[in-house]
Computed example of a mutant assay.
Amino acid sequence: MENVVALQPKERVRQDAEPIATMYRNLGTSSAEQVVTRALGELALTMAGLASQVRAHEMGDLIRQLRRLQRMAENLGMVSLSIVAGDLRICMDLGDTTAFAAVWARLLRIAERSLSSDKAQLDQLDHTPF
C-alpha cells in the first residue's frame, strides 16, 4: 500500500466580521460579548445536535435544523458555514446520499474551523475598541 495517499482537505473558511462589529457598535462591548458568546454557544449546540441526529440516522427534522444553523451562521458572519449548511439542505432535497455524506464531512470541517477561528477573533475583539 505504498501508493496510497491519504488526502487531508483544508477548508478555506470565509467570514464577514461586519455583523459582529455592528453588534459591538450598537450594544457596547459588554452586551455584545454576551450576545456573541451566547450565539456561538447555541451554534455549537446546534452542530452537536445535528451530528447526533446524523449518527442516529434521524433525518426527519434535519432540514429545519440546517435552516436554523444557516441563519445563525449568517447572523455571526460565518459565510462558509452558512453556504455549506444550505448545500447540505439541497443534498437532502435531492435525496443524494453520496453527496450528503461528502457535504456533511465538509460541514463538520467548516464548523470546526469556523468555531475555533471565531474564538480567536473574539479574543482579538475583546481588546479592540469600537
Rank of each mutant, 00 (worst) to 15 (best):
S31Y: 09
S31E: 10
S31D: 10
A32F: 04
A32D: 02
E33N: 14
E33G: 05
Q34W: 03
Q34H: 07
V35F: 07
V35W: 00
R38L: 12
G41N: 11
E42C: 06
E42Y: 09
L43E: 12
M47F: 15
A48L: 11
G49L: 11
S52E: 08
R55D: 13
A56V: 03
A56Q: 12
H57C: 09
L62H: 01
I63H: 06
Q65L: 14
Q65W: 12
L66P: 03
L66T: 04
R68A: 08
R68F: 14
L69M: 14
L69T: 09
Q70Y: 02
Q70M: 09
A73S: 13
A73P: 04
N75S: 12
L76S: 07
L81R: 00
I83L: 08
V84F: 07
V84Q: 02
V84Y: 05
G86K: 04
D87E: 14
L88V: 03
M92R: 05
L94P: 00
L94N: 06
G95V: 00
D96H: 05
T97D: 04
A102D: 13
V103F: 01
V103Y: 03
V103I: 10
W104E: 03
W104K: 00
A105F: 11
A105H: 15
R106C: 13
L108I: 12
R109A: 14
R109V: 06
I110T: 11
A111H: 01
E112I: 07
E112S: 13
S117R: 09
Q121E: 12
Q121G: 01
L122D: 05
L122R: 13
D123W: 07
D123N: 12
D123P: 02
Q124A: 15
